[in-house]
Write a protein that binds this DNA or RNA. Sequence first.
DNA 1: GTCCCGGCGAAACAAACTTGCATTTGGAAG
DNA 2: CTTCCAAATGCAAGTTTGTTTCGCCGGGAC
Lengths: 168, 168
Amino acid sequence: MQVCFAGTAPLPTSPSPDSFDLAILAILQRDNTTPQRLIGEAVNLSAPAVQRRIKRMEQTGVIAGNVAVVEPAAVGQPITIFVEVELESERSDLIDAAKRQFSAAPEVQQCYYVTGEADFILVITVADMGAYEALTRKLFFDSKNVRKFRTFVAMDRVKVGLTVPLPG
Amino acid sequence: MQVCFAGTAPLPTSPSPDSFDLAILAILQRDNTTPQRLIGEAVNLSAPAVQRRIKRMEQTGVIAGNVAVVEPAAVGQPITIFVEVELESERSDLIDAAKRQFSAAPEVQQCYYVTGEADFILVITVADMGAYEALTRKLFFDSKNVRKFRTFVAMDRVKVGLTVPLPG
DNA sequence: GTCCCGGCGAAACAAACTTGCATTTGGAAG
DNA sequence: CTTCCAAATGCAAGTTTGTTTCGCCGGGAC
């Protein structure tokens, strides 16, 4: 049954997803291989309408990408490490340089510039501690601007994902 | 032209992806909407062969899932926060209870049990600091087992993803 | 009241995915 | 050394899925 009649729920002109978009996102960020027909049934919309909304959200950047999640341990990268990095200087050009250097390393899965007792937090994936040691040499010891860093080795990846909580 | 002849690269019996699998994964974890025909051209395999390998990696868990990446700021969750949590007791049953409680919260995007000066590291997504304050009350202050926690607010999501570095 | 605009649903179209089969190869057994 | 078996490939057909086009309806502006 179709609760929403034509025209009663206009698509957002440019940004701000409505409740239909959010319902679609909730499904897609769990499994983006779900057929649009099933999505339509779940949210009470036709398949083309779902398609249009998805395409729009991809173009406007609400959907940043569609990716396969790879299990690191299955491809020889079983170790996940968190690093808090504290810089010597917080000059903006040095901050930007650090951002670029951290981002360029493929082992750096995630990099955030943060407030608080550290300047950066990195999430790193490596094959073994030797690889991590080599990486610290490259990223931290060879950089004159790193004052200190603290390492946390993950023993259990309790919950991993990029899922965003959605209202509704 | 087909460089690799039939049988010259036997599929691994159960685990350990070969170089073909890794090449496919490298593409899929960047964009899993890539047509299998294009993947085949890129890795010198036919489309059905690509399909079989993908299916197998999904069944064996090498590919943990296929998801759409949602931009948090576009859905009203612009704030990303890191929290280091230190527990009072490290009794295993209390550790497990903490894992369950943290995982159950939708705002907790990622949760890792770690070594070092903290016990857990959480990645949290919220709409505003008020929501974070309420969450800290629920997760930390109401829990008798949380000794202390340190908060880092992300000013810049420099690099975000679940991409695993792949040899080759 | 009339016109214009935007979105929706149904159907036709195109593309991709999936499946079965014959072929070839590498390795093990005789 | 020869033979057999298991496994993976490529090709081709069938099926599902995603995409586009069309006509219709409701709402806002004049």
